[in-house]
Design a protein around this nucleic acid. Structure first.
Lengths: 207, 207
DNA sequence: CTCGCATAAGTAAGTGCTTACTTACCGAAG
DNA sequence: CTTCGGTAAGTAAGCACTTACTTATGCGAG
């Protein structure tokens, strides 16, 4: 196997294990074993454990999706924003964030760990992600408030609400995968439901 | 210092460190040092690390508040439920959950870690907490739907939304305490804001 | 009051195992 | 014969947990 190939295999195994056990919890021995090489090989490809973690975050599927979200290329989202179709906007936003969990990087788990563990890199990663979401969604909410379409709620509080729903949903589905005790809700249904709740609330429309 | 006193001191230090670094991340050496005794003393008071963790969860301020929530004694909540004052109900629920963070046990952090770490005890703890919340709040929502006061949204989805807001809010405030980068929102304001969003949504009332 | 002694509170210095990381070496391809 | 992908066998430090031992604290009998 060539160097580049091996590197990718190691990264893939590392992502899996870091997102499962966190930075501290995942061991280099495990990662090496999971990628089918000796620990020594791992340390030839990556200077140390930190460098390995950094490489994951710098990875296309992670940092880029954390900061850019590929939102720029989401036609459904662009169309929804242009048409001021709020339900579609929030649905697309939620869905694309949630689906990252399913993609090559178990994004949400990595994100939650990075918020808890005291690791500079991880913390910066979390902050960048959250800030970016606040900017994007918060900006949209503020705009719609100016339009008179949204009530005057602190945009940041609304973002915190939406992001919280999504994070908690991911957390629950992760746990569901492990134990099957909790309720499984599909990402699609959750994204739709959260968008609906966020926009219309629980109160029945007054006649 | 008497045995019981010492035990309490150790528990206090352990709570602090477990909630900061997680179960794996906190070391018995650190915990012993933080409580001003040798490691050997720690292991005289608690059979092993697991037993120490278990003792914390069994603690009044933790398991009981996780499963009972002291909601039975919250007069403001009981009154709000009786009067079907939904805004007050959700505000009280949110506020009491959030305030646990401030109390003797940094509840939310412990909860988040327990959701991520692969530790039977921790997982059970998280499940119990979440199930209990789903039952209580979900039950209330279902009832209000029957009253015709709430729209037909899956109760569990609504609970997931509310709990998610609260968890994420705690996570942000934790990180704020550490870095000061994120927006600090008081628990009171957050609980009020989330209750409002959950009930009324963002959409401006249609004329 | 105090002596004797059991018991609880405490420690220093380990145990064996795991951790991140290293060194010294090997075989094949260019 | 060097360079690259690879390994076996380390190392020092850190982990949960123990051992062997010392001090403090009751507390009933004399």
């Amino acid at each position: 196997m060539s160097g580049d190939e091996r590197r990718r295999v190691i990264l893939q195994a590392a992502v899996e294990l870091f997102s499962q056990h966190g930075f501290k919890g995942a061991t280099t021995k495990e990662i090496a074993k999971a990628s089918g090489v000796s620990e020594a090989m791992l340390f030839r490809h990556f200077e140390n454990k930190d460098a390995l973690y950094e490489a994951i975050i710098e990875t296309k599927g992670c940092r880029e999706s954390a900061t850019k979200f590929a939102w720029d290329n989401d036609e459904a989202l662009i169309k929804a924003i242009a048409e001021k179709d709020d339900a579609a906007v929030f649905y697309r936003l939620g869905f694309t964030i949630l689906e990252k969990q399913q993609s090559n990087v178990p994004f949400m788990r990595l994100l939650l760990y990075s918020a808890l563990e005291e690791h500079d890199l991880a913390e910066r990663f979390f902050h960048e992600f959250v800030e970016r979401v606040y900017e994007f969604i918060g900006g949209y909410i503020a705009k719609r408030q100016k339009d008179g379409a949204f009530r005057k709620v602190k945009p940041r509080l609304a973002v915190r609400a939406l992001l919280g729903m999504l994070l908690h949903h991911s957390l629950n589905n992760i746990l569901w995968d492990k134990s099957g005790v909790l309720l499984k809700i599909s990402n699609d249904e959750a994204a739709k439901g959260f968008a609906d709740i966020l926009l219309n609330g629980l109160n029945a429309k007054e006649a």
